[in-house]
Design a binder for these strands. Structure first.
Lengths: 157, 157
DNA sequence: TAATACAAAGAATTATATTCGCAAAACAAT
DNA sequence: ATTGTTTTGCGAATATAATTCTTTGTATTA
């Protein structure tokens, strides 16, 4: 699909990326246009799948998800090609699944309560997925930054 | 800080994580309580830093950010300890900065328009940061899943 | 130039957010 | 237990915002 975003769209995206709960009226004020027009824009951006979702960022520590790790997963390319990624994505502790170059495998981002939960996840969920040959785990000691806010340019093209 | 979240709080978190633009009235309906009470809860959750932010998820392709990579950065531990992470976090293309175990270094998540922009970022931004010894780059071919929705339990403790 | 979108404005309506006072419940201390 | 204190929710009132719809202007295209 084509996008063709103008400056108004980009401003909306910038404001909503910063605060998804901002109201249309405030965006309208900022842009100097009517709230109804902003609403139309937003709906169009959703419909064009430029705006994909609105997520509240929950503090992991508050709900006892203190451990973060990344796991590299080597996959038997003959058996599980597309399928393995989908199966990985179904695991709720797995927040991200990336198909990576080079090692014919995936890198996944996983949140668990602690290292025990991580081990059990690896034993019970990961290794039971067809095509998974080996794993290498990266433990995160501390996260300095974690907002997935993109750089939204002033103008496109 | 202490959290002490009850079932009502967890339901609110679950609903807002799924859709940050949901309105208090709908949460109230779901919970069978008054909208004003929900509002109070939400404000308290924000104040306690359980709810950290509300982000719109923007389609990277729509704004010409087609390339995703992870970079492992080895750091001279004597020079840049805490400082290096902060400097990395200041780069707008850098979406995440994680202090990782083992290699005394960081892993960062980076979005750029293309590989050229990635190279220029590494030359101009990364290597100029004090303490950065070496880098290893992981190129993402395709992302299967990327929602950072946590598992919110039915009950805590 | 006429016809066809397309986008925005503005008014009207509906829905939601927010405030506030009150009451009930939970909690703590003695 | 009982008293005092804090917390939490309710419900009504008001303010604010979302949404719908009609109209108007502006591009776009044949």
């Amino acid at each position: 699909m084509e996008y063709k975003l103008d400056e108004v769209d980009l401003t909306i995206l910038r404001m909503m990326q910063e605060n998804a709960r901002i109201n249309n009226s405030e965006i309208a004020r900022e842009l100097g246009m009517a709230p109804s027009a902003v609403l139309e824009r937003v709906k169009k951006l959703e419909q064009k799948e430029v705006l994909l979702a609105y997520h509240a960022k929950v503090n992991p520590n508050a709900i006892d998800q203190k451990m973060l790790s990344f796991i590299f997963i080597k996959v038997d390319e003959i058996i599980g090609d597309e399928e393995t990624g989908k199966l990985l994505a179904e695991i709720p502790e797995v927040l991200e699944v990336h198909d990576i170059a080079g090692d014919d495998g995936y890198m996944i981002k996983v949140r668990t309560s602690d290292s025990l939960a991580l081990v059990s996840l690896m034993r019970n969920s990961l290794s039971r997925i067809q095509g998974v040959i080996s794993t290498r785990t990266i433990i995160v000691l501390q996260t300095v930054k974690e907002d997935n806010k993109l750089i939204i340019p002033e103008k496109l093209n």
